[in-house]
Design a protein around this nucleic acid. Structure first.
Lengths: 198, 198
DNA sequence: CGATAATTCGAACCGCGGGTCGAATTATAG
DNA sequence: CTATAATTCGACCCGCGGTTCGAATTATCG
């Protein structure tokens, strides 16, 4: 019978290998884009045989889902503190977006994947993917901040949904648009948001 | 020997059939998204046999390129007048974006395709597609308006590129973001842009 | 009408890429 | 050391979908 310590080590090694595969997948995605990411290449880059990938994951989609979940977990981990910080809606809202920008600057490929993949991948039934919950939670929190902010006169008196679209688009444009991948500074984010919010 | 009138009619019919195929392609794209658009279905929807499509177009990509070119041509046709209208940079800039929004509202599937496809499709060497020229021209004109506007104090004193990203993102967010495909009003566009531009 | 060119189309082709198989290698247990 | 389980992997499988083939149908013209 296998002893407990061995089982722990085994499962740790298993997790570590899954991690390696995810790193490889991210590298390939960064290089070739979501569509151009073939598992043969993910296998090659991560240093495993193709079949081994399927020993650790059941499908290509699971690999991407795991990557997405990782990203959203770490992002949400950072955002949660700010969200419950108790600052005014407007200050909280801006802080959260600044924090996201900061995270993006630390690991651009990961977060590019995080914010690009959903729209290309949300087709079909993988709606109830685990990572999706975090995306929804973030959306909800930001939306509530806007609604609160409007009540308190910190935001323009417009439809919340419209403000959300505007801020989302603005943020996305600043952080992700353009061939030049200059890291955007938090100051620039703040300046733009402040300008739009009056 | 084939007479001239017949040749004209023939080529007109050919163009008309190409048009039908493009309509079908757009319908399928609207329904299934860029990735999910199979030629079998485009053939079915447009009412031709699959092989007939290849009698009128050399490849799937050519179909999409033709669609893109059509869209950009009609869009540019509308924008050109405004661009050379001689109004102030800021007024011209806002008018152009409002006009684009107006066009989007008249034929959402087409313009969604127009603004969505490039990023998913620009991979590879089809850089010098014909439609790309129009996209670049639009970008250039808007960029110049921003630069002029900054000089004349009509825009915030910031890097033009940054303003471009912000405005582009904001516009895109307002017009395309969200599941709800409410047509956005020109007033809302103007209000948001004005707010951001101070 | 008869000959030739234009048009249409379903069947077949074929490369790509996700997923599986079975054998080989390595680790663990007793 | 032996038996068994865990892990690895290249070769193969197979469906999907873009493209092509060849035959059939239809239009054009003298």
């Amino acid at each position: 019978m296998t002893n407990t310590a061995t089982i722990d080590r085994k499962s740790a090694e298993r997790a570590a290998r899954q991690e390696l595969i995810l790193q490889g997948a991210l590298a390939v995605f960064k290089e070739k884009g979501l569509e151009g990411a073939k598992i043969d290449e993910i296998a090659r880059v991560s240093g495993f045989g193709k079949a081994t990938l399927y020993y650790y994951f059941t499908s290509k989609e699971e690999i991407f889902s795991a990557l997405l979940l990782h990203g959203w977990l770490s992002l949400w981990h950072e955002l949660e503190e700010i969200a419950v910080g108790g600052d005014s809606p407007r200050a909280t809202f801006i802080s959260m977006l600044k924090k996201i920008a900061e995270m993006v600057n630390t690991d651009r490929p990961l977060y590019e994947f995080l914010f690009q993949a959903p729209q290309s991948y949300t087709r079909e039934e993988n709606e109830r993917s685990e990572w999706k919950a975090y995306q929804n939670r973030l959306y909800k929190v930001l939306m509530e901040l806007i609604e609160q902010g409007i009540k308190q006169g910190e935001f323009p008196q417009m439809e919340p949904r419209l403000i959300m679209k505007a801020m989302g688009g603005l943020f996305h444009g600043l952080v992700f648009l353009g061939k030049d991948r200059d890291t955007i500074t938090e100051n620039e984010i703040e300046e733009m948001l402040g300008s739009l919010l009056g």
